[in-house]
Design a protein around this nucleic acid. Structure first.
Length: 216
DNA sequence: ATCCCGAGGG
DNA sequence: CCCTCTGGAT
């Protein structure tokens, strides 16, 4: 497929996504948060976990540790206990603690709004950094998670497996201002229709042009 | 058994 | 590239 065909495929995909899931990246984000810091923590917690479960533990977590400064003085065991049900709780607790200390020390307690600074924080990878950039700061950022990866491959927007490569390839197709919204709309479609185990191709509005239609 | 808005390390 | 970390839902 050449660049022109690929762009046409993207435009069709985009049309379905924007019609099916109207709204901004911010309005479509299901995580509960009141600050960049809280969004950062909620996104760290969302690894291999549903947003619903994250929202179940964050009220207690943010009441006890609302800011980087407060968390930097936390007892890691207490964080672990609160977030346990989100899974990977030991490493997540360590990361949230270390990240908070770094934010306090290196950024004066304020979560940075640049990708290269965000990814240097402990426990913050490209996906998490792009979520914070696009959802909180309204800056170009295209989070590539398991859903974006799976759908991009199925639809035919990429052949790569490496999420960073996929992110860079998608950046060529998606205009900067649409990147965050594109990602969250793909995620919603991945959850509701194009699920990992049993994709509902019959009900999918992309089934006319999706490369993997009917393949699974 | 397989998947959920991953990151870090080997 | 691979592996590990973890609990909950289906």
């Amino acid at each position: 497929m050449n660049d022109k065909e690929l762009d046409r495929l993207y435009q069709k995909t985009k049309k379905v996504l924007w019609e099916s899931y109207p709204g901004s990246a911010r309005s479509l984000c299901a995580l509960d948060f009141k600050s960049a810091y809280q969004l950062l923590v909620a996104t760290i917690l969302s690894a291999q976990c549903t947003d619903q479960r994250v929202n179940q533990v964050t009220p207690r977590l943010f009441k006890r540790f609302p800011t980087a400064e407060k968390t930097a003085k936390a007892n890691i065991k207490e964080i672990e206990e609160i977030i346990k049900s989100t899974g990977f709780y030991h490493s997540k607790a360590n990361n949230i603690y270390a990240m908070s200390q770094a934010v306090k020390k290196d950024f004066n307690g304020e979560v940075p709004d640049e990708l290269d600074k965000l990814v240097k924080l402990p426990g913050v990878g490209r996906k998490t950094a792009n979520v914070v950039l696009s959802v909180w700061f309204d800056k170009p950022g295209l989070p590539v998670d398991t859903h974006v990866l799976r759908l991009s491959k199925r639809i035919g927007l990429t052949k790569s497996i490496d999420p960073i490569k996929v992110e860079l390839e998608l950046n060529e197709l998606v205009r900067p201002k649409d990147r965050g919204a594109f990602s969250i709309k793909m995620i919603l479609h991945g959850r509701k229709v194009c699920s990992a185990r049993k994709p509902d191709c019959d009900r999918c509005k992309m089934n006319k042009f999706c490369e993997k239609n009917g393949v699974k």
